Simulated scan of single mutants.
Amino acid sequence: MGCGAGRHAFEMYRRGADVIAFDQDADELSGVRDLFTAMKEAGEVPAGAEADVKEGDALSLPFADGEFDRIVCAEVLEHIWADVDAIKEMVRVLRPGGTLAVSVPRWLPEVINWKLSADYHNAPGGHIRIYTDHELIDKITKAGRPNDGTDGDAMIFTGKSYAHGLHAPYWWIKCAVGVENNDHPLARGYQKLLEWQIMKNPLSLRVADKVLDPVIGKSMVLYFTKPDAA
């Protein structure tokens, strides 16, 4: 949900899932569809796996109740004013017993970014809130309950992790020297480090990520299960 350029969708497809990449940006979705096709033609996906794209609004998902086994929503909710409505829609289209993974910017690294630069979050379509883990867990666990006050099963919180430990210092540098100042030596040098990580993922950077993720990981990842009435 909110697939953007498709990073998570591609990985799920590569692992053999039947994937729907959903977003409101038609141009992004066009690129995602093209890469889905290229992956299949190159034999990068298991036989039988299918993938497609769907354009729409996160506040009114064009899917039936309980249509999906799993939903990934990565770095999306911090952009949406009516985040509770978007969460309720995800819960609606998730089947009983299905799983939901949601990532958002982690509180401390994000607070530092906001303190260092107003431009970081004031850009069109930028971040409009900073979540604590307690706030987001509360919003998601309550999302499955009816609005009429009657009893209903809440989503079950099953775990939390952190990711992108090497990314937090990069954004602190960017916010300190100017978010759009891509030619600053510090920003440019650190960007090359992250590109090296993405392309080669050497052992040294894997170890660095493992050490830094719990301490300053830029993203917080929360996991939930929808109760199975059966």
Rank of each mutant, 00 (worst) to 15 (best):
E50T: 14
E75T: 04
E55N: 13
F36G: 05
H127R: 08
D83G: 02
L94S: 10
G159Y: 04
V211T: 10
G66E: 12
P105R: 03
S117N: 02
D183I: 02
G165P: 04
L186R: 04
F36C: 02
G159H: 06
R129Y: 05
P62C: 10
E180D: 15
T150S: 15
A230K: 14
S117M: 01
D153Y: 10
N182H: 14
D209V: 00
D151L: 13
D69I: 06
L77C: 05
D83H: 14
D228H: 12
C3H: 04
G66L: 02
A208S: 13
H164K: 14
A168E: 06
D25K: 04
P214H: 03
W171F: 15
H134F: 09
I87W: 04
L35W: 11
A82W: 00
L59H: 13
Y223G: 03
H8M: 07
G98L: 07
T225R: 15
K218V: 03
W172S: 02
G2H: 03
A38Q: 15
R15D: 07
V104E: 08
F68Q: 10
A101H: 11
K139H: 12
A47S: 14
V91G: 09
A21K: 01
G178D: 05
D57I: 03
T225L: 05
D25Y: 00
K88G: 15
K142V: 00
R206F: 00
V179D: 07
I128V: 13
E78R: 02
H184W: 04
G98C: 05
L194F: 10
L29Q: 05
N201W: 08
D65L: 04
L77T: 04
A176M: 08
R206L: 11
D85S: 12
A101V: 14
G152S: 06
P169E: 05
V76L: 13
M90V: 07
V221T: 12
V102H: 06
A187Y: 00
P227R: 04
K174Q: 14
P124E: 08
G31P: 01
A47E: 14
P214T: 07
L194K: 09
V72C: 10
L186E: 03
G98K: 03
A47P: 00
G43A: 09
E41C: 01
